[in-house]
Amino acid sequence: MTKQLDPALDHDDYRSNDKSDLVRRVGVRSSLFNVKNKLVGYGLLLPAAAVFILFFYLPALYLFYIAFYHWSILSPFQQFVGLKNFRTLLAQPLFWRSLENSLYYTIVMIPAITFLSLGIAMLLRDGLSARRGGVWRAAVFLPHVTPVVATSIIWVWIFNPHFGLANAVLSALHLPQLGWLESTTWALPAVMIDSLWHSLGLYVLIFLAGLSRVPREIIEVASLDGAKSPRIFRRIIWPLISPTTFFVIVLASVNTWQAFSQIYTMTGGAHGGAGGPAFSTTTDALLVFQTAFTYFHFSLAAAMSLVLFLIILALTVVQKWISDRIVFYR
């Protein structure tokens, strides 16, 4: 092979006709190309990464710092207090109450989200023709694209304990009427109903995607195999969509632990009283917000966030551990 074969290589410092040298040179050039390619890649990542680092990761790290300080927004000199913030928290009944509320909310919401959205997804998948199915899918998804705050206000009216729709329905069914948002027992369930209504669409969509990956033939073959619908669901569909289910559960746990807007709005919101009545809807997320932005106890709020973070982390680890054992990935 001669250098004339490749005019691109034909320049002054090309001193050898040796083939291996040529190979090496081409190699160098392609690795240069790779480096350039990578640089372009990172360059394109940079704006998004900068936003995330500046407004998400750094503040999140900073939170660890202020959780151990007596941190006042107006003072440049912060005093290290060790675990005092955490001790204060643990001594406050309200903090425990908020954890209790968060736990209650999550424990009800996750199964409700999972099973309701799966059920709706199954209905949408099986029971409807393609065209009408589209209308129904849109109808189910629509609440999810509405603003939480605006629709929560509508739900406040629905839950009006004296003259609202919810109680009218209960009364039509000859069931006892409830105090809903004015009742310490029913306020959080009322918020749950709103949240479910608002968020189900997303989870239904995720389940529909998961179900669409279960080949129709497998279900047909199972039915020819003599299995009736419940058995097909339990033995075939349920295991096959287990990765989707796991994803929904993780997403739902994170979302419910962090639930804020609908609780804030439905229980008083901007007009005060959020988290009521009598702290019955004060979840951990809400308490973090109030502590930081209503009462300006930033370090306490940071400590609370940290506890919330640890809880979510632990939950996710547990979920991962479980999923490694029961989720079937194809």
Partner: peptide
């Protein structure tokens, strides 16, 4: 500090 804490708190 203010920039950090503003973002730190989840909400």
């Amino acid at each position: 500090s203010v920039g950090f804490v503003g973002g730190s708190l989840i909400l």
